[in-house]
Every structure is written in structure tokens, then in C-alpha cells.
Design a protein around this nucleic acid. Structure first.
Length: 797
DNA sequence: GAGTTTGAAACT
DNA sequence: CAGTTTCAAACTC
């Protein structure tokens, strides 16, 4: 089983996502029929500040393929304006890799180290991509491998410190995507690679999809970034997954994110486009596995299943983990994809690769002519169906719109996908993206618009987002022992709400494949033990990293902890619990109640962690048995005519007057409603007590802000004063306002001190006494200085 | 920081 | 479903 660590998600280009345009009701359901209850949560407010839609794709290959191949995918976008359709001679130059690669057309995919290419990419008119050459790793015996097929030239090279070879395929046409390349292994051991072309190229704004292939490097987790110009195009992280020889299983993880597809694909402009990220794991001594990004269409055709995950509360992140080895030929199932829940959704894309690198598969990345601006998006998808796209954060992309949300601590960035050739036609499903051609500029949007965007910076999540340095040379190995499932890979139909850590029922026909839903803390914990090296580059500086957090309704398990209101989510950003007796396995524990693992809590005897998966699952089940809606958000949408937000059950306060945080309504900053059973409630609109409290609260807040500002100002003034007085003393030069320790004063002071010293010496006083006298004299001098200073200041004023 | 209050959750 | 107990957060001192 592979686990996608949260850092990977954080590195996803989610900061530029506009999720609304991505998923529409017309798409995913068609692929994966959603259970009836999968859409129940539509009325649930989506915490716009914390929901980061993600698409996780899990791919499993035929277990019977004991191959040792590593494939890392990297997508590139090209701004080359030269019409390149069908042109020959597209060439991509990369630096030599440490190990040779052999690409075999029919080779199945295996997971591999992710390559992050930190190079500048030039794409001249002759379609020759040249990545900055990086010194080959020691022992590198290879030269750049030029690969040709159908007019393509590919160069196998090594980029970055990982020294892992990368093959980039540049399709000059969609039909030729998926070129297979071959290279010689430095050790004489052929390795199979499959090149999948991601994205296509348009006439005016060609977008070149490049897939980097890497050999089975002993070092895992090394990632590199492919950049075009100064814009990082993709960020992918791979981990080598231990592959059992007895049961070779290829597991692929692709994290994709929804992206506005407008303007990206002329033929599928209305299709949702998703960004993808490939995650793989591998161990040094085991064959690398293949990672691939596949478009939804191809996936569907090849028997893939999709799973829509509804947005969840901020602190949690869900990850789908492949639990069991799939049967290669087993048909895949759709798990449930309510596309109407596109916002903040996570989509789990489970794919079986029963067929090795067949042309059809290689073509999965085919995309029709696409028009892409220097945006960070790369279309990976195919024609006529949902697509996966890789969104590459561009720090200074002109197509990124900074969105400022009043009252939000998050910084939103709207990714604007503009096509030069054909303006994106606004679609009904994603009208907000229609204006994507606008130059990047700060803008203020209302919450309705904001919720379609993705926060790119969360102060409290940033620390979790910081990617591991690329230079990490230590092998990052994730062993199967380190990976845990909260529940066995068996269906759990009885669980309607699916908290993180719950196993997803295998899709019908998917064989014995199961999926586990992991919450962010879970992944975090896994990550702590199973380190995955993430590439870090300037292009992915912390501000662009996003801690994606979402929760999901899976298999119709839409009731699982989910959305809090924006204020709620921001107010309780990962508040540590202090449970002592509940073992954090009851709803008393906020962490547990929110479907989160305890992390950095003060709890004792905590079972809400990886080490107690079974207990936790039992507790979850028990809670659900007691109350199937136990993990539903308490604050939901009220009835018509009522407030937009109200407590789902209402409070039962008796003594607090519902004006203290004991009251859940008041805590959520909402009024008590008709369903509340509170006594002596003062938490209603016209309540004078409530108004008073509100005013006091506002005043207190203002006061705090003022105090903070005053402190800041004082510190600044002190600092400034010090900087101004220092030169006056040291240089003895010009006098400055309120600077009285001038050269003359200092000299006079020194003379006084010397005089005292001489007197002490003449009087044969002891050294201690002499020091005391001198200090006393110094004190007097200071006193005089202060007095003169005060007097001078008074006179000045 | 310790103790108290409070109300939701859990239990009977 | 109601009453009681348990629990952890909120609150007070």
C-alpha cells in the first residue's frame, strides 16, 4: 500500500486551482455513478478557506509484471508559439543520467522515482527542448539519449541531484503521444520505460507534455522540477514501493487536482480537467514502479474508477491508499463521483493497468490540440472525457490572480488559463473562469467566488507543507510494514459516513482491491515514519505550497466529517485536545470528532493515532452506530427563511444563556434556532445581551490589534533610535536629535572615570574598591547625561 | 495553574 | 426517550 504524504499534497499546485470549472455534474457521474447519498452534502457549506480539492489517482498494474522500471512523470508546458502540430524534430535535451535506460514499447509501467526537473526549458521553433544540463551523478556513464519516434527526439538525461535519468517525450501531435523510448542501461541491465506523452500542443500556444522517466534509482524520493523558463511546471513526488517478487504489484499514485480546462483543450474545453501528481514509492532494492498520469477518458476506457471526495474540514486531508493487489483483468468500478461536489473535492482515481504500455495506454495522455498560455497547467487528459492536468504553480505568472478574501487568513490565487488563439468560452458550469484571460491582478471576491478557489497559504498549515529538500540524499524508503491500514481491505458497507482511516469498499469488479481513506494526520504520521523526499525549489516556495485538506464522501459516505463554516474552520485550526480518559476515541475529543488524528495534542493515552488503528476504527464504528450522523457537521444550512447556518441539532444550554462558548451555537457564532432546546436563551438576533457581547468582543479585538500595533511601533522606534544613536557615539560626529551621548560627553565621562581611578590608586584603595568608585562615578555621569537630555528635550519642545 | 462550570456525549 | 454519568472544554479565580 502506498500512502500519499501530506507534503505531496501540499506541493500540489492547488494554489491555483479553480475547482468549480473542473468538475461538473455532467462528468464524473457519467464515469462513476454516485450513490444516492453521495450528493447529500451539497447543501453543506463548503469551507472555502480550507477545502482543497484533490484528485488522487491510484493505479495498479498487473501483478504479473516483475519489471524493474521507474517512471516518473513530469509535465511541461510550453509557451512556444510556433505552430508545431505534426512537425518533426521535436527534441528535448536533458543531461545524461547516471544510469542508462531502456525503453520498451510494451513494457508495463512501474513506479519510479519522481523526477523534479529544475531546469530552464527552452523551446525553440524547431521543437527542441533543452533543459539545463546538470552534472551527471558520479558514475554516470551515459550521454544524453536521443530518441526518435515519429519525428520526436528525446533525450534521456539526468537532472538534479538525484542523478536519476529522465526521459522526456515531446509529442508533436496528440496522435503520437506515448512514444516509447529505449536507452541502454549503464550496467547492461535493460530497464523498461514507458513514455507517456502528456498533453498536446496547439498551433498558437503549444503545450508540450513531457513525461520524465526515471530509472530505478536506489535513492528514492528524489524529485526534480521541470521548469519552463522560470516557471516550474510540475512537481511530482515518487516513492519507490517495495515490490514483492512473489506477487509483483505495481501501484501508482497520482494525485490530481481539478483545474479549469477552459482554453486548454479546444475539443474538450468544457470537460473538467484535473491536475495530476504522481506519487510512487519504491525501495532501493525493489523494482521501481510506474507512475502515470492518465486522463479520465483513458482511465475509464482502461477500466478505471473514480471516486469523488467531498471537501472536508480544513485540518484533515484524505488520501486513498491502495490496499490490495488488483487483479489485472478485473474491471474497474466507479466508486462515486458526485461532480456537483466539485468544489473542494478529492477525486480518487483508481486505475488498473492490466495492459502494459500499450499504444492505447501510451496514448492516454494524448490530448487534442490545446491552447495554453504560460500557465501552470498541463493537460494530461485525453479527448472527450475528463482530463487530468498538472498545474504548475508559477510564482510570478501573469495568469495567476491573487484573490483576497475579506476576513480570510488565506491567500487565494486563481489560476487563469488563457488561450491566445481562442478565448475561453464561458460555460455554464464554470462561469467564473470565463474571465480567466484577465491579467493577473489582486482582486477581492465574495465568498461565493472564493469558495471555488484554493487557498495557497495557510499560516498554520504552512509548516506542514514545507517540502523536504531536494538535496536529501538519504534513501527514503517506505516499507510495507510502515504502512498501515485502518481497516482491512474489505468492504464495509455498514459504514455510511466514512471517517478518515476507513477503508473504502472495493469497487465491484475491482477484485480484491481496497482503498483506505487516510486523513491528513494519518498521512502525516505515516510520513513521519515513511519519509518521502519532496523536491524543493524556488518555484515552489512556501507561499505557494498548500496544505490541502479535504474530506470525502466515499461510496456515498458523504456524511463524514466535513465542512465547517469558514469561521469555524479558521477558529479551530488544529486545536490540540486535552483528553485524558476518552483515549481520544470518543466524540468528546474534538480531533476524533472531526475525523482527525491527534497531532501535537496534549492528550494522554491517546488512541487516535496510527498505533491504534483497530481501536480507532472500532470507535468510529461505534459512534456511527450510535449516531449515523455523528461525523456530520453540526453547523449546517438552515431551512428556508432561516439563517443560512444553524446548528443541526440545536443546543441544550440551560445556564449559559447561550452566550458563552459552552453553547455550540454561540461558539459557532450563529444564532440559536427553533430546534434549540436551550433555556433562557439570549443568543438571538435582537438580544441586547448578545449585542453587548458582540460589541465587547469587537472592542476587545480592536484593542488587541491596537496593542499589537503599538508594540510594533514601539519596537520600531526603539530600533530606529538605536540605529541613530549608535553612529553618534561611535563616530562622535554630528549631533542628532535626542542623542546626547556625543563624543564630548563620552570623553568627559571617561575623564571623570579616570579621575576616580587615579584617586583610588593614589589612595591605595583595593581593586574592588576602585571598581566600585569608578562605577559609582559612572552612575553619576549617566544620571547627569539623562538630566541634561531631559532638559534639552524640554527646551526643544 | 487549579478548580469550577457547563453542556455534549455516552451510558443506563 | 428520559435520566444519569462521563467527559473535556470553557471559564473563573
Amino acid at each position: 500500500m502506498d500512502v500519499v504524504p501530506p507534503e505531496l499534497n501540499s506541493l500540489l499546485p492547488d494554489e491555483i486551482m479553480d475547482t468549480e470549472a473542473i468538475v461538473t455534474d455532467d462528468d464524473l457521474p457519467a464515469v462513476c455513478p454516485a450513490p444516492p447519498n453521495a450528493l447529500e452534502r451539497q447543501d453543506t457549506p463548503v469551507p472555502m478557506e480550507t477545502e482543497v480539492p484533490e484528485i488522487v489517482t491510484l493505479c495498479t498494474a498487473a501483478p504479473s509484471i516483475p519489471v524493474q522500471r521507474t517512471q516518473a512523470m513530469t509535465t511541461l508546458t510550453s509557451t512556444d508559439s510556433t505552430p508545431s502540430s505534426g512537425s518533426m524534430g521535436t527534441q528535448l535535451l536533458l543531461t545524461p543520467s547516471s544510469s542508462a535506460m531502456t525503453l520498451q514499447p510494451s513494457s508495463p509501467q512501474v513506479t519510479g522515482s519522481l523526477q523534479r526537473l529544475s531546469t530552464s526549458l527552452a523551446l525553440p521553433a524547431n521543437h527542441q527542448l533543452i533543459l539545463n544540463k546538470v552534472a551527471a551523478s558520479p558514475g554516470s556513464e551515459l550521454k544524453p539519449q536521443l530518441l526518435k519516434q515519429d519525428g520526436q527526439k528525446l533525450v534521456v538525461t539526468t537532472l538534479g541531484k538525484g542523478g536519476q535519468p529522465i526521459v522526456l517525450a515531446m509529442p508533436h501531435s496528440a496522435a503520437k503521444a506515448g512514444t516509447l523510448l529505449s536507452a541502454g542501461d549503464g550496467k547492461g541491465q535493460p530497464q523498461q520505460f514507458k513514455v507517456v506523452t502528456i498533453g498536446g500542443r496547439t498551433d498558437l500556444k503549444p503545450m508540450v507534455g513531457v513525461q520524465a522517466l526515471s530509472t530505478a534509482s536506489q535513492l528514492m524520493g528524489t524529485s526534480q522540477t521541470v521548469q519552463q523558463g522560470q516557471h516550474p511546471k510540475t512537481l511530482q513526488i515518487t516513492k519507490k514501493v517495495p515490490v514483492s517478487t512473489a506477487a509483483p504489484m505495481i501501484t501508482k499514485f497520482i494525485i490530481t487536482k481539478a483545474l479549469n480546462s477552459k482554453g486548454l483543450n479546444s475539443q474538450t474545453s468544457l470537460s473538467p480537467v484535473m491536475t495530476g501528481r504522481v506519487l510512487t514509492q519504491s525501495t532501493p532494492l525493489t523494482p521501481p514502479r510506474t507512475i502515470s498520469v492518465m486522463d479520465a477518458l483513458s482511465s475509464t476506457q482502461s477500466g478505471s474508477s473514480k471516486m469523488a471526495i467531498s471537501p472536508l474540514k480544513s485540518p484533515s486531508k484524505l488520501t486513498v491508499v491502495s490496499v490490495a493487489s488488483p487483479s489485472p483483468a478485473s474491471p474497474q468500478k466507479s466508486v462515486a463521483v458526485p461532480l456537483s461536489m466539485a468544489l473542494g473535492q478529492q477525486i480518487l482515481h483508481m486505475q488498473q493497468q492490466s495492459t502494459p504500455a500499450s499504444p492505447a495506454k501510451a496514448g492516454l495522455s494524448h490530448s487534442t490540440t490545446q491552447t495554453v498560455k504560460p500557465v501552470q497547467t498541463v493537460t494530461v487528459g485525453g479527448v472527450g472525457g475528463p482530463q487530468f492536468k498538472t498545474i504548475v504553480p508559477l510564482a510570478t505568472s501573469p495568469n495567476v490572480q491573487h484573490i483576497q478574501v475579506p476576513g480570510s487568513r488565506f491567500h487565494y490565487v486563481r489560476l487563469v488559463t488563457a488561450s491566445s488563439g481562442s478565448p475561453p468560452a464561458p460555460t455554464g458550469s464554470s462561469p467564473s473562469v470565463a474571465a480567466s484571460l484577465q491579467p493577473a491582478k489582486p482582486m477581492v471576491v465574495n465568498s461565493a467566488t472564493v469558495r471555488m478557489s484554493v487557498p495557497i497559504v495557510s499560516a498554520q498549515t504552512m509548516k506542514q507543507v514545507v517540502p523536504k529538500p531536494l538535496t536529501s540524499a538519504a534513501p527514503q524508503v517506505v516499507t510495507s510494514q510502515q504502512q498501515r491500514l485502518i481497516m482491512p481491505a474489505t468492504p464495509l458497507p455498514q459504514l455510511q459516513p466514512l471517517p478518515p482511516g476507513t477503508l473504502l469498499a472495493p469497487a465491484p469488479g475491482s477484485g480484491n482491491m481496497g482503498y483506505a481513506v487516510l486523513s491528513a494526520p494519518y498521512v502525516t504520521q505515516l510520513q513521519q515514519s515513511t519519509i518521502v523526499t519532496l523536491a524543493s525549489s524556488s518555484g515552489f516556495s512556501s507561499p505557494t505550497c498548500v496544505q490541502t485538506q479535504a474530506r470525502l464522501p466515499l461510496n456515498g459516505l458523504s456524511d463524514f466529517p466535513s465542512s465547517l463554516s469558514a469561521s469555524e474552520s479558521t477558529s479551530r485550526q488544529r486545536k490540540p485536545c486535552n483528553c485524558t480518559k476518552s483515549q481520544c476515541l470518543k466524540l468528546y475529543c474534538d480531533c476524533f470528532a472531526n475525523g482527525e488524528f491527534c497531532s501535537n495534542c496534549n492528550c494522554t493515552n491517546c488512541f487516535n493515532n496510527l498505533e491504534h488503528e483497530s481501536e480507532r476504527l472500532k470507535a468510529i464504528k461505534a459512534c456511527l452506530d450510535r449516531n449515523p450522523e455523528a461525523f456530520k457537521p453540526k453547523i449546517g444550512k438552515g431551512k428556508e427563511g432561516e439563517s443560512d447556518r444553524r446548528h443541526s441539532k440545536g443546543c441544550n444550554c440551560k445556564r449559559s444563556g447561550c452566550l458563552k462558548n459552552y453553547c455550540e451555537c454561540y461558539e459557532a457564532k450563529i444564532m440559536c434556532s427553533s430546534i434549540c432546546k436551550c433555556v433562557g436563551c439570549k443568543n438571538f438576533e435582537e438580544s441586547p445581551e448578545r449585542k453587548t457581547l458582540m460589541h465587547l468582543a469587537d472592542a476587545a479585538e480592536v484593542r488587541v490589534q491596537q496593542q499589537t500595533a503599538a508594540k510594533t511601533k514601539l519596537s520600531s522606534q526603539i530600533s530606529d533610535l538605536l540605529t541613530r544613536t549608535t553612529p553618534a557615539i561611535s563616530s562622535g560626529g554630528g549631533k542628532q536629535p535626542y542623542t546626547f551621548v556625543t563624543k564630548e560627553v563620552a570623553e568627559a565621562t571617561v575623564e571623570c572615570l579616570m579621575e576616580q581611578a587615579e584617586q583610588a590608586e593614589l589612595s591605595n584603595q583595593s581593586q574592588a574598591m576602585a571598581e566600585r568608585v569608578i562605577l559609582e562615578e559612572f552612575g553619576r555621569c549617566l544620571k547627569r547625561i539623562i538630566n541634561y537630555a531631559g532638559k534639552a528635550k524640554t527646551d526643544c519642545c
